[in-house]
């Protein structure tokens, strides 16, 4: 049986993608990038939960009873998952939690993008009143983070610098 040249190219490309996706240096780069990003993102939210609660309220999506609870819990989920990714403690599970958060962020941002609701992202810092973020840019950024998270989750090789793989 003769395999056509086009199919060979596809197989080679497929193998190259697999090789890249299973590269342990890439895995550690993705894991640390995502880990530090989420630790950093949780910092201001933990320091000023009241400001973050105002940001959550500004999204105009959540029932009022849940706003303070989101503002209290979400930063710590980001922090613990971020530390867990950085140190390599249950990295697949931490990556799955972070991917879940990222999917939720993308859904929330897209809803506000579609309905044209102006709001402050509050992703990394609280802005002073009147600041409005660009949802399109934030969705693109979150999709990039999601790809990093998928790399960490789907990686099947030996992980480098991992305390509890």
């Amino acid at each position: 049986m003769v395999i056509p040249a086009g199919k060979w190219r596809a197989i080679r490309l497929n193998n190259q993608v697999k090789y890249l996706f299973n590269n342990s240096w890439l895995e550690i780069a993705c894991r640390w990038t995502l880990g530090t990003t989420f630790i950093y993102a949780s910092y201001y939210k933990i320091l000023s939960p009241a400001d973050f609660a105002n940001v959550v309220y500004g999204y105009n999506l959540f029932p009022t009873f849940s706003i303070n609870l989101i503002a209290i819990i979400l930063p710590y989920v980001e922090l613990i998952s971020g530390i867990s990714l950085f140190l390599g403690v249950y990295p697949r599970s931490a990556a799955l939690i972070i991917n879940g958060l990222l999917v939720a962020f993308i859904v929330v941002l897209t809803i506000n993008l579609v309905r044209g609701h102006e709001f402050d992202c509050g992703c990394f810092s609280p802005h002073e009143t009147g600041h409005v973020s660009s949802p399109t840019r934030m969705v693109v950024r979150d999709v990039i983070y999601l790809i990093l998270g998928l790399q960490v989750f789907l990686f099947s090789g030996q992980r480098k610098l991992c305390i509890v793989p």
């Binding site: 819990i73 710590y76 989920v77 922090l79 613990i80 998952s81 599970s93 939690i97």
Partner: peptide, 11 residues
């Protein structure tokens, strides 16, 4: 486990 640690620390 990770989520529980986060929730307990948060509250």
């Amino acid at each position: 486990f990770l989520f529980s640690i986060a929730v307990i620390s948060a509250f």
